[in-house]
């Protein structure tokens, strides 16, 4: 992220009630082919199809959600993200989106690698476990953190991996994956410093092509 861009548009409009969707909606170029993993009821895909003319596909594990997605006209198939990508040919999509689901997959790195195989670009949004509220909840309460972002009890949480902005940056560097753009959000505001402390949600645009590696920004 450059210094200039950090002063532009500190306020993020919401899309379908979510600011990470607004970022995704901004990133995705018109008339492209998009696969949304863990697409729920397909709201984002429907928005992208209607407003950006994208060819929208989705994967979702919950049959009830798949039903509602298909009923709204989105091509979604019921399946498991951890296994579901193997059938797709290389480079089948312009974008593969994983929104707030990475922490719920069994093998996140394998999923990321598969996403980069089937997509030219990958958009990953995840809740930041390094956010100050999480740190505070754990430091003060002494139990597994429960916050607005992580509202579950430890025994019924769908989240099975906990990652911070710092962790994700480290993984990108270790794996040599190219971060094209990164966005940090707190509520409806962009966060421009100490993202590992202040960001509730991080949105990354990755590409698999081994080109010029963007220098990782020092997370807080």
């Amino acid at each position: 992220m450059t210094a200039e861009s950090s002063h532009k548009q500190a306020f993020v409009p919401e899309l379908l009630g979510r600011s990470d969707y607004a970022i995704i909606g901004e990133i995705v170029e018109p008339n492209t082919k998009v696969l949304d993993l863990g697409c729920g009821e397909g709201e984002l895909l429907q928005w992208l199809a209607e407003n950006k003319g994208v060819d929208a596909r989705g994967v979702e594990i919950s049959g009830a959600k798949v039903q509602r997605a298909i009923a709204r006209g989105v091509s979604v198939y019921q399946g498991d993200i951890d296994e579901g990508l193997a059938d797709y040919p290389k480079g089948a999509f312009d974008y593969v989106i994983l929104s707030q689901t990475l922490q719920q997959t069994h093998k996140p790195l394998k999923v990321l690698r598969e996403m980069l195989r089937v997509g030219r670009r990958v958009i990953v949004a995840f809740p930041n476990f390094g956010h100050w509220a999480v740190r505070l909840s754990m430091a003060v309460g002494g139990g597994a953190p429960k916050t607005k972002l992580f509202p579950y009890n430890w025994y019924d949480s769908p989240n099975i991996h906990f990652l911070t902005v710092r962790d994700f940056e480290a993984l990108m560097a270790l794996q040599g994956l190219v971060v094209e753009r990164r966005y940090f959000l707190s509520g409806r505001h962009k966060v421009h410093f100490l993202p590992n402390v202040l960001a509730e949600v991080a949105v990354y645009l990755l590409s698999g092509s081994a080109g010029s590696t963007a220098s990782p920004q020092g997370p807080g």
Binding site: V66, A69, I70, V74, S75, Y77, Q78, D87, Y88
Partner: peptide, 18 residues
């Protein structure tokens, strides 16, 4: 059927109804 269609990158929706 769905897997074969995905291999061809065809537009396919699938659900198993309860």
């Amino acid at each position: 059927i769905v897997r074969a269609l995905r291999t061809r990158n065809c537009d396919v929706a699938y659900v198993e109804l309860q």
